[in-house]
């Protein structure tokens, strides 16, 4: 009886009795969710256009962040460093397409998945060799990102928000809007959607798959760069981030592998669910449940909608 009370009733009593804490927890969850969503977005972009489950996305975030920091450390102005990092991401996309994807065209999904593991290893090796293994900090001031925090009075308490988190949310929103515009209105965006629908049909109307793949990986690289900056501004950029990036996977199964809105909403649901679970139910189980809660939330959703919340309906034929 006591256990049931602790699990089913007590957390909600706490939520109601301290609403400011509740809202604060939700905000923390949303902030984490934005970052998960950004990483998931990179996955979705690549999966939609090339059917590759890009395991290296998390590593690309780290790599992009470290590249930017390295350019800044050389004394380049922020804008130049940013441009140079974007250039590096293009180079990366280009060489991945040329060296890895092109020879592996038409292979089963799992082989391509495996190849992205190879890319992850390469990025770890080169990254540590070039930038060193220690965590580094993004110079936030150079990017005009705000610092400090603001407090809102809420329901007899205070909710504290870091300005950088608000900026991150706004930038993520802007980027998603830009991506939506790019996909819906531009010529290349239309070509990308055509490729996502059917590789063969796209080829037959004269769309170059190779070119499209470079563009998609480049776009995912830019998303990774933004995620890297945002993450680096909150804490440090280090290779440990790669493990956190695995959190983008439950986001993906929740939102569906092929849906951009799914990635965003999935990210927010996972972020909030995880923080609420850890804060209100975690102590009952000895804490640290954040590490697996996200997967169970996603699994729960999956049992009812096997293709994710917004994924394409899976149609099977014999």
């Amino acid at each position: 009886m006591h256990v049931l009370y602790m699990v089913l009733i007590d957390p909600f009593v706490q939520m109601v009795s301290a609403p400011d804490l509740f809202i604060q927890t939700i905000w923390e969850g949303l902030v984490a969710g934005v970052l998960y969503a950004l990483i998931a977005l990179g996955f979705v972009l690549i999966f939609k256009a090339s059917g590759v489950f890009n395991f290296a996305q998390g590593m690309m975030v780290v790599f992009a962040g470290l590249t930017l920091i390295a350019f800044q450390d050389m004394g380049l102005p922020a804008i130049v460093a940013l441009a140079a990092s974007i250039g590096v991401m293009y180079l990366l996309a280009f060489s991945i397409e040329r060296v890895v994807l092109r020879p592996l065209v038409n292979q089963p999904d799992i082989i391509l998945f495996m190849a992205t593991f190879g890319i992850t290893y390469l990025l770890i090796g080169f990254g540590e060799m070039i930038f060193g293994g220690e965590p580094k900090e993004v110079n936030t001031k150079a990017f005009w990102l705000p610092q400090g925090s603001i407090e809102f009075p809420v329901l007899g308490g205070f909710v504290q928000m870091q300005k950088i988190d608000i900026a991150a949310a706004i930038i993520a929103g802007l980027m998603i809007a830009a991506l939506a515009f790019f996909f819906q209105k531009t010529r290349i965006g239309r070509a990308l959607r055509a490729v996502a629908d059917s590789h063969k049909a796209a080829l037959s109307v004269g769309i170059s798959l190779n070119q499209i793949w470079v563009i998609v990986w480049f776009a995912a690289g830019i998303v990774a760069l933004v995620a890297g900056i945002m993450w680096g501004a909150r804490s440090n950029v280090s290779f440990a981030l790669q493990v956190v990036a695995l959190k983008a996977l439950p986001v993906l199964i929740l939102g569906g592998f092929t849906s951009i809105p799914g990635a965003i909403i999935g990210g927010l649901i996972i972020g909030v669910g995880e923080k609420l679970g850890e804060f209100y139910w975690g102590p009952l189980m000895g804490g640290g449940i954040e590490s697996w809660l996200a997967y169970f939330i996603a699994l729960g959703f999956l049992l009812f909608r096997p293709q994710g919340l917004f994924g394409d309906k899976i149609i099977e034929r014999i």
């Binding site: 060296v99 890895v100 495996m114 190849a115 593991f117 190879g118 890319i119 992850t120 290893y121 390469l122 990025l123 770890i124 090796g125 080169f126 540590e128 060799m129």
Partner: peptide
């Protein structure tokens, strides 16, 4: 080793 393992896998 990381680089070589990655390259060999690919």
């Amino acid at each position: 080793i990381h680089i070589l393992v990655g390259a060999l896998i690919i």
